[in-house]
Design a protein around this nucleic acid. Sequence first.
DNA 1: CTGAAAGCGCTTACAG
DNA 2: CTGAAAGCGCTTACAG
Lengths: 343, 343
Amino acid sequence: VAQDQGLAAPGTAAARKPKLGDVAARAGVSTATVSRYINKLPLVSKAAGERIQAVIDELGYVPNLLAGALSSNRSRLVAVLVPGLSQSLFNPTIEAMVHALGQDGYTAMLGLSGNDDTDLNRLIDAALARSADGIILTGIVGHDNLRKRLKAAGTRIIETWGLPDNPIDAAVGFSHAQVGRAIAAYLARRGYSRPLLVTARGTRSAERRSGFVEEWQGSSTVECQEIEVESPSRFSQARLIFRAVRQITPRPDVIICGSDGLAQGILVEALAAGMSVPDELAVVGFGNLPVAADMRPSITTVAVDGERIGREAAAILMQPDVNSPTAQRTIDVGFSLIERESA
Amino acid sequence: VAQDQGLAAPGTAAARKPKLGDVAARAGVSTATVSRYINKLPLVSKAAGERIQAVIDELGYVPNLLAGALSSNRSRLVAVLVPGLSQSLFNPTIEAMVHALGQDGYTAMLGLSGNDDTDLNRLIDAALARSADGIILTGIVGHDNLRKRLKAAGTRIIETWGLPDNPIDAAVGFSHAQVGRAIAAYLARRGYSRPLLVTARGTRSAERRSGFVEEWQGSSTVECQEIEVESPSRFSQARLIFRAVRQITPRPDVIICGSDGLAQGILVEALAAGMSVPDELAVVGFGNLPVAADMRPSITTVAVDGERIGREAAAILMQPDVNSPTAQRTIDVGFSLIERESA
DNA sequence: CTGAAAGCGCTTACAG
DNA sequence: CTGAAAGCGCTTACAG
């Protein structure tokens, strides 16, 4: 394979890209020493290091991470697999994660898995084909054979936002069931008696639902009403749900939404219908988006430290000694119920 | 370098990862032929192809793209550099882009550049170090030496959402100045006379502002009022801006917002203050988020086909012959003003 | 602390 | 249509 190795023609700006060997030759050391210096291994003398750095600056050398990865069997590539970006609760998590990874020279490859497992197989293939050092998941991995595949993949797997009973490898999140219980307890304490639960099929809101129902049945004789929606809850579902609410007897006195967006939509509908919140109808959100505090009335909701989830997931992936007894495997970041005006 | 090349111990599930050579040997062909088959080069006989595919399935062979990239000098990696994810207009663009890229075996590496050029240098380094085949930018590249750097990078550069006078390489977007003009013309036609412009510093809303002012001055003797905000506009700025509005004389009759989120916030404030929209105060948004149609009153705004921007950007990057005369370099996807209740 | 050299797993120009 | 073999640009076990 004879590639063009010559220097650029005179007058041309772009010269041949310098490589490790060029740096080594010019600094008067071996490629091994330059490699050690660049990778911050502690074996390089100060004098050699200074000479190497000078040449790197002079030549504008940028290491080829592809070659480095192939050779060292460490890609410093992390696959971040999320359902979507568009109205996602996970965005602050992804941002924090990408920042934390970038700090240490890792790069995130973004995979969009949709709301079920269909595309996940393809994304995992892509991650493995690129020798990703880790795969971070935010959605739920439901299918059992997918879990097995991930377990056998020979890569770190971090599940986030949930805390599975049986993590594939490591997990950072919180208990959605406990969130449901906390909301139920709060509403009972505030004297609400006819809750309506809106649950999105196939998401973690189903886990919150179970917790809510369990807790509610312990403290009230009135069953809670329920509505199930197909996709993750959002603003646009509010109109339909609000219409349904008006036909339910007895009329619910509080709606527990799967997202702040939906909660906001319900508020808008209620206000447009001349219904007073929270007196005639109360609303609880989930996620504590910025809008929850700014809405009028402000939205009672559940806050989760998504950025911390991102940072901790990145940290687990990058921790030097995976097998040490101090290595973290499961982190519960908790949540907090934020009482505001809407409920 | 002696790595463990042995098969797994009996009883162990994980065997050594098969590589190209294993497939070749088992199929009775050379590695060259297997490589050609996998990369869909048209030179492989049908018989050989079938044998190879059978072995691939049998062994569960997954090509090592790192090695392939190093060898072929094509990484099929694309750096997608966006300011952020949290309340970003670009998210549908990114989603469409990632989907389109994934279809053809490309992978997106996600870089978060913030709202200025500070981090961009580091992200470009990372992209080049990984031999990205292309860099897609959604933010504005302001600094001139950064533009020069990108131009000299020897990689495809696609600027999106704007149409720079002088693209670094290729661009997919629309004219923000024309958006401003279209809004001004619309508002004049509807009889509004005292517009208030909210512009975010250092973003493209500044380009829309110029277009608006230019058009407005051509058709009205009343100057438009202006407010400048530091960060991209969003819901949470509404309270402050609304307070300011009430102190401006003459009182503005329409507010032109940099985003639907801010427009929504203004609506909430106006409604809470008992002001009727659009009679006492009208509002125009930007982006046509789903919420714009669902809000009450629904929001008059500007729609941009962000998904198309994503698809076209990906297509430009993956087009087979970059230098052919038919190769696209600049695509104007246009926009449309959507008239709703708020203005 | 340093270097010579083998190896990572592919692709491809060349020759048939 | 196919194969032998050199090469992509690094890392690292080994020997000093």
